[in-house]
Design a protein around this nucleic acid. Structure first.
Length: 131
RNA sequence: ACUAUCAGCCGGUUAUCGCUCCAUGAAAAUGGUGAGGAAAGUCCGGACAGCAGAGGGCAGCAUACCGGUUAAGCGCCGGCUUCCCUGUUCAGCAGGGAAAGAGAAAGUGCCACAGAAAAUAACUGUCCUGAGCAAUCGGGAUGAGGGUGAAAACGUGAGGUAAGAGCUCACGGUAAGUUUCAGUAAUGAGGCUUACGGGUAAACCUUAUGCGCUGUAAUGCCAUGUAAAUCAGUGUUGGAGGGCGGCUCGUCCGAAUCGUCGCAAGACGUGCGCUGAAGGGUAGGCAGCUAGAUUGUGUCAGCAAUGGCGCAGCAAGAUAAAUGAUGACCUCCGGAAUAUUAUUCCGGUUACAGAAUCCGGCUUAUGACUGAUAGAUUUU
RNA sequence: CGGGAUGUAGCGUAGCCCGGUUAUCGCGCCUGGUUUGGGACCAGGAGGUCGCAAGUUCGAAUCUUGCCAUCCCGA
């Protein structure tokens, strides 16, 4: 896979199954890098990486703000996920995780980019330990 | 220059990376496509879908000046009446605005405090009269004067009377009935008769008109399931239960029997109906799902809302839910410097806000610019 | 997407149906007393745009309408 310089984020990479999400909340592990909270779960079956993004409607009442935050996180994830993906291919692992924005203020793109990078590094580290 | 209202309008091009859907393709990929005036609130009205449909009565809900408009409406347009403001004038007229604008003269209730009394009025008063030396007390008539209050029993004047009173009369006001004219109608202008009985219906209510219920998480199909399964109660044909969605009348539907014991009545088991318990499965795909009371424009009819006809166009369909990120240039705005035309630099290019079945309205949120109308102040 | 309920002092509540005189109660708060001091107790007091706005009425926490916020239910 030398053509990983392309930064896709296709439908298959989104976490869409209602069942999978509820089991993730029930059984998955979690950590927080403010203002982002992550639930994650890994297994050693197929090589699949799926992610879901959400913003609580308690702090952001308007759909415009929620959509904006989700778009920013998605963009940041898209540009930085390749390292995580390569690591998973090497380890032959399956990872699903769910990102929740728990801050109260509208962030700007640079901050989100930085924090998302930290989250992904932490996920890599955690999976390395587990292995 | 400021404020208010109404109408229009939401920057453009391009590069890199990326997303939804569609088409082509074996695939890689290529091409096309992609959010508003409110997409919002869910306040009205429909379309569409499912369920239920022999009906009567009651209850419930909604609407409430008149006409038009529309698929429909608590919307919109035009008119009427009442009220408010402004101007002119002293009769009203003109302009603007508001109205949940049927009925209080069908009935019931309520009207705090104050006041004699808050709706079959009588504290003080006035008059007549009886008792008494007198002060005063008793009987009757009356509803004019008095203060209170948001509201006080048609108004003014005259007659009348023991004192008074719409008790009578003149003028005026309001309401009801009837009638003439104008108007499609609400209503207006008059005639005649009768009455004068406060407010509140966003208190109960009355009258008239209309109304089945549930909503795309509707609904249909497919997939999944030891599941037409298990346990308990109850009924089994003068009958459990159910429908006509609230109640009732009336009416209709409605289960299956068989075996054993017994002379029979009946008992037990089984099947079926109803109710409940415990438990199991799916919470995934497809359809519904976007071409329609459609959008733009011209013209005709109409005071207008709106409608007819012609021409051109096709304009999101996601489902943990696409329409994004970073730059560049142009345009526009603001500031600073050089400078008076202009150039350079810096900052901004946005408010409210994101489709979720689809339409027509209403309500609410909103920045900049352009145009129109109205208002007031300052400067010249 | 559809449906429903509730907003009253810092907190929890009554009053709302059927409008009326200074808006109720408990905890908390403040002041004073009691105590060596604190707590408890006693006495007194403050604190309310009744979620916001408009309307009906002589008069609105209460009735009506429109907004705002919070909470709940539904395949």
């Amino acid at each position: 896979m030398k053509t990983t310089q392309r930064y896709f984020f296709k439908k298959q990479e989104k976490l869409k199954s209602r069942k999978a999400i509820s089991s993730l909340f029930a059984e998955g592990q979690q950590f927080t890098i403010f203002p982002i909270k992550v639930y994650w779960q890994s297994a050693t079956t197929e090589n699949v990486l799926q992610v879901g993004i959400s913003v609580g409607s308690k702090h952001f009442k308007k759909a415009v703000d929620r959509n904006r935050i989700k778009r920013l996180i998605r963009e940041a994830y898209r540009l930085q996920k390749n390292q995580l993906n390569e690591h998973l291919i090497h380890a032959n692992k399956n990872l699903t995780f769910f990102v929740i924005y728990i801050g109260k203020d509208l962030p700007d793109y640079k901050e989100i980019y930085k924090k998302t990078g930290m989250v992904l590094n932490k996920l890599i580290a955690l999976n390395h330990e587990n292995h």
